[in-house]
């Protein structure tokens, strides 16, 4: 029993180290003045790159831009998906609508963006902040609809009707019954759609026309330039918000519900 417990503890530690190592490595690379093979550790560490890059190459601006886009996409797609999936779920042609929701994923986001690019130019949305949000919503929104379509069951419909006869208005039903019951799913959807937007590259490149420089685009730019130290810095910024989001929401995301 003791040996089994110790073995489990050992493997848990190995797993944690394996997961944390890439993040720690990126952070150290972004702080290194010089780190040349075969040195195990960098010669010295400095905060200069962080302070210079945040100012000079507008990485902080990209961080804020990415946050703005990801938060907008996550909020809009989560709530729009929640409300519209209800109508789809109870629609006589339910299965057809749900099948259509898979369309952007079957086509691949990059091809999807290339196909729709013409309309973005016509609407003067190519290369704009709103255009990129709209483009990413074309992926995040169907994902949200698919995720919520399982929530709307006959039981939920019965609970809704029962609440009506108990005296609940449409708004009260949402506020006091449906939203609390879907709380866990809403959080998962928000988190997932945030990540979809946050790490989105292909679609953002096409719709953004290089004018909307999100953090993910910056990372690829530095990698293409073989600028590992700057790429490590941008990557550190890139992985930080999802980790913070996960850390603060862990008790809601992983909590056991009714």
């Amino acid at each position: 029993m003791i040996s089994t417990g110790r073995a489990r503890t050992f493997w848990v530690k190995v797993l944690i180290i394996t997961l944390l190592f890439p993040v720690a490595y990126l952070l150290m690379l972004s702080l290194a003045t010089q780190w040349i093979f075969p040195s195990v550790l960098p010669a010295s560490l400095t905060l200069d790159r962080w302070s210079t890059l945040l100012g000079a190459s507008n990485l902080f601006g990209s961080l804020l831009l990415s946050l703005g886009i990801a938060l907008s996409v996550a909020t809009i797609s989560t709530f729009a998906g929640f409300f519209s999936s209800k109508h789809l779920a109870y629609h006589p042609q339910r299965s057809l609508w749900i099948r259509l929701s898979y369309f952007p994923f079957v086509l691949s986001p990059v091809i999807y963006a290339a196909v729709l690019y013409f309309y973005f130019i016509k609407l003067d949305l190519a290369g704009s902040f709103v255009g990129v949000i709209l483009g990413q919503l074309l992926i995040a929104y169907p994902y949200s609809v698919i995720l919520f379509s399982g929530f709307w069951s006959e039981r939920i419909q019965q609970i809704e009707k029962l609440t009506q006869t108990l005296g609940g208005s449409r708004w009260q039903i949402y506020r006091r019954v449906l939203l609390p019951m879907a709380q866990g799913l809403l959080l998962v959807c928000f988190f997932q759609t945030f990540l979809i937007s946050w790490f989105e590259y292909g679609l953002t490149t096409i719709i953004g026309v290089g004018k909307v420089q999100t953090l993910t685009l910056k990372v690829f730019q530095y990698i293409n330039e073989a600028n590992f130290y700057n790429a490590a810095l941008a990557s550190s910024l890139l992985v930080l918000p999802p980790i913070i989001l996960l850390f603060f929401n862990r008790k809601y995301l992983f909590r056991q519900r009714w």
Binding site: L162, T165, L166, V177
Partner: peptide, 28 residues
Amino acid sequence: PQAREVVYLYQEALLFPHLNVFENIAFG
């Protein structure tokens, strides 16, 4: 339905799963 003062109860109790007994009864 909310203005009729007629309550319809289904075969299942359909209690609100996120509320305890007190809050379920106090709901109305």
